[in-house]
Design a protein around this nucleic acid. Structure first.
Lengths: 210, 210
DNA sequence: ACTAATATGTGAATTTTGTGTCATAAACAA
DNA sequence: TTGTTTATGACACAAAATTCACATATTAGT
């Protein structure tokens, strides 16, 4: 019933609705949303229907109630504690990224193999990778951001998996498969860029044909 | 004919094939690829077919020729010059990211509004944002990575668009739509993480139901 | 040379995802 | 109250993406 892109769309709805809310709007129509996101209004209504979000015929949808419903769907009642494994440049950048906290996501610790990177006097402590397994178990961590070098990626995933983690957001270039126990979502920045380059070059070719 | 995920799959094929090549393999069968990537072998064959990659019945595909064909498809004959706009933590991390160069992508400059961030004595120079428009035009830059703060995202996209850039890889939380002139691919890290959290929590629920 | 084995290539079938259509409920006006 | 408008919600339809199924080419063994 709920398909792949639906949650990502729901998050887009949320962003837009929060914006409209901040502008003082109280209600919204499916085609207000569909127009700005460039999808069909029936898809918006279908998504809402699938998640049990209802509106009033002629009256549209109440922004406040959609937003609280979305938060409920996403389980925003409790703060999600996330760890970052691999405190290189990208790991470091994500560790201090301000965008997480207002979505109820808290980076609670970083882990790295370099002993001189470990420090516990900062707002987010960085521990040695040896301690990650105990930390996950003791703190019941379910989600991890993986930003280690490619060389140690597989080994690290195995370690995290053995520690019983539930989900990994993987920024390494190695593509990992999910299992029933462990969901791994891969973000390959180089591939995203290569894909963009392909599309842009293709587009240019087609334009010059005209 | 060529569909949305196809190029990203092609890049996955490339990674896998390079790995197999490094292990000394000369040829590969569609189900070798499909097994490791957990897709169907017919999809692999169909992708290959769509891109004009042919194999030998019974004999499989020749790894060397697939790889050179893929590079040809991706236009890897020339180095792609890319700029980064917004040298905050993420921009900085991407600027020194080692993964780009071996895929023929070169980060040629960074741009930021902070005057004390500008420096030209480094391997990749950082200029003031005022100079981005001229730089794009003079150097015929087609692709940009956008890592500015949310507040100035829209304004910056307008600026880049007016300078005639062809593609933006957008890391800001604002979702932008592509036009026929300008392709914008959005990577929303917070959304990716929220999506993962949703899936993992859902999974846990379903497991406890059993 | 003949036969058996096997992996490709491709059209058909299926699944997945998104859109159009329209009856109906709600709101408003007269 | 009655009529008119209008946006939802449900479902049929369409499009896109993926898998199935199998004829065909190619190789290897006897």
């Amino acid at each position: 019933m709920t398909n792949k892109g639906q949650i990502l769309r729901l998050l887009n709805y949320k962003n837009l609705l929060k914006h409209l809310q901040s502008l003082g709007f109280k209600k919204v129509f499916s085609d207000n949303i569909s127009d700005t996101l460039e999808i069909s209004s029936s898809l918006v209504r279908k998504d809402f229907g699938n998640f049990g979000i209802t509106g009033n015929r002629k009256g549209g949808y109440d922004i406040d109630s959609i937003l609280s419903k979305i938060d409920e769907i996403l389980g925003k009642d409790e703060i999600q504690r996330v760890i970052i494994v691999g405190v290189g440049r990208i790991g470091e950048a994500l560790m201090s990224y301000q965008g997480f906290i207002k979505e109820g996501i808290q980076i609670v610790a970083g882990f790295d193999i370099e002993p001189d990177k470990t420090k516990t006097d900062t707002s987010v402590p960085i521990y040695h990778i040896d301690k990650v397994s105990d930390f996950i178990i003791e703190n019941k961590i379910k989600i991890c951001i993986l930003t280690v070098p490619q060389m140690v990626a597989k080994h690290t995933v195995d370690l995290l998996s053995a520690s019983g983690i539930g989900g990994i957001l993987n920024f390494t270039p190695i593509k990992f498969q999910s299992t029933s126990e462990l969901t791994i979502n891969n973000i390959n920045i180089v591939h995203e860029l290569e894909n963009l380059i392909y599309v842009v070059n293709k587009q240019k070719e087609n334009q010059s044909k005209t």
